[in-house]
Design a protein around this nucleic acid. Structure first.
Length: 301
DNA sequence: AAGACGAAAGTGGTTGA
DNA sequence: TCAACAACTTTCGTCTT
């Protein structure tokens, strides 16, 4: 993957001895002079807004990438030309490069800034708390550092990060619901989330039906007592292994429909479908099977 | 007219050979 | 890797309230 690396154009010879025999060390992210051994370039970066994707040897690679994120913080004082006046030409030359590099870094910052604005926008539209926005931005930042933005839109990665943060918090939202708050389609959000989860090795579990209940019943304006009935139905369904292979959202939606009828707080299948992000057909199929399984005298209600 | 129902055809994910 | 499969969606006509 050596040829995958992007060189800054002006780095063609060693500042110390002038040799053009240079070797790139991918793992360390350095360019080293073959003649005198000087590290000509550290933290080799893509001059464009995006950067290359590190492959194996993650640990070393990550160290240099992390440095990149804090370039201006670490090196800020190096840019003071007054302090360095009178030094050799090659040193000015080097400093000039750091400045260029800082501009590259600021494009990373701009990416993060744009992303965080987007994240806050979606978050406030969805009524998501500060803590979760923080978690989502943490995931986003790590995705950026891993180079996962490449070939994807900021919006997609933002939506996926938020989706993931919600799931990991035990308060998942259905993909269609996420998509309705984003300009990105649910397929793209789902695909991006799977990638992020895999690449960042995030530990997630398959959402359980009960994780959706609070949010759904709230949105439908159902009473706490009705919500309690939903939970009871889910417990009974689980006892009979109703959850294998079926979408947890569909199960939650079906249970909510049954409970809304039982508790005289009837909601139409269409209303529930809209809130839960599944179709009426799915709710019908699911609640019918549940009624059958739990021997509920539904028609008498 | 609104809501519920179910058939039919299509999609995307999972599983097992 | 590919076919088979179950769950789910979309669409639409029909029935019930």
């Amino acid at each position: 993957m050596t040829d995958d690396i992007y060189h800054i154009e002006e780095v063609v010879k060693c500042h110390e001895c002038g040799s053009r025999k240079l070797t790139t060390d991918n793992d360390k992210g350095e360019i080293v002079c073959n003649e005198c051994g000087l590290v000509v370039e550290e933290n080799v970066i893509d001059p464009g807004p995006e950067w290359r994707n590190y492959q194996a040897g993650e640990d070393n690679a990550r160290a240099s990438k992390d440095n990149r994120m804090s370039h201006d913080k670490d090196r800020g004082s190096t840019f003071n030309w007054r302090e360095t006046a009178g030094r050799t030409r090659s040193q000015f030359y080097r400093m000039e490069k750091w400045q260029k590099r800082s501009r590259v870094n600021s494009s990373v910052d701009r990416n993060l800034a744009v992303a965080f604005v987007e994240l806050k926008k979606i978050g406030s539209k969805m009524g998501i708390g500060k803590q979760l926005i923080e978690s989502a931005s943490e995931i986003y930042k790590r995705a950026v550092i891993k180079g996962l933005i490449r070939g994807r839109s900021i919006e997609a990665v933002v939506a996926a990060s938020l989706y993931g943060a919600l799931r990991m918090n035990g308060t998942p939202r259905p993909l269609p619901v996420m998509a309705s708050f984003s300009r990105v389609g649910q397929k793209e959000i789902g695909r991006t989330w799977r990638l992020i989860r895999r690449e960042l090795k995030l530990k997630t579990t398959v959402p359980k039906p009960e994780e959706y209940v609070q949010k759904f019943t709230n949105d439908l304006g159902l009473a706490n007592s009705t919500m309690k009935v939903v939970y009871d139905l889910l417990v009974k369904a689980k006892e009979k292994d109703f959850d294998n292979g079926r979408s947890p959202i569909a199960i939650a939606a079906g249970a909510i429909y049954i409970a809304s009828v039982i508790c005289n707080q009837r909601r139409t299948q269409a209303e529930i479908a809209a809130v839960c992000g599944v179709t009426e057909v799915t709710i019908r199929n699911c609640y019918k099977q549940m009624v059958e399984l739990l021997s509920i005298n539904f028609n008498e209600l």
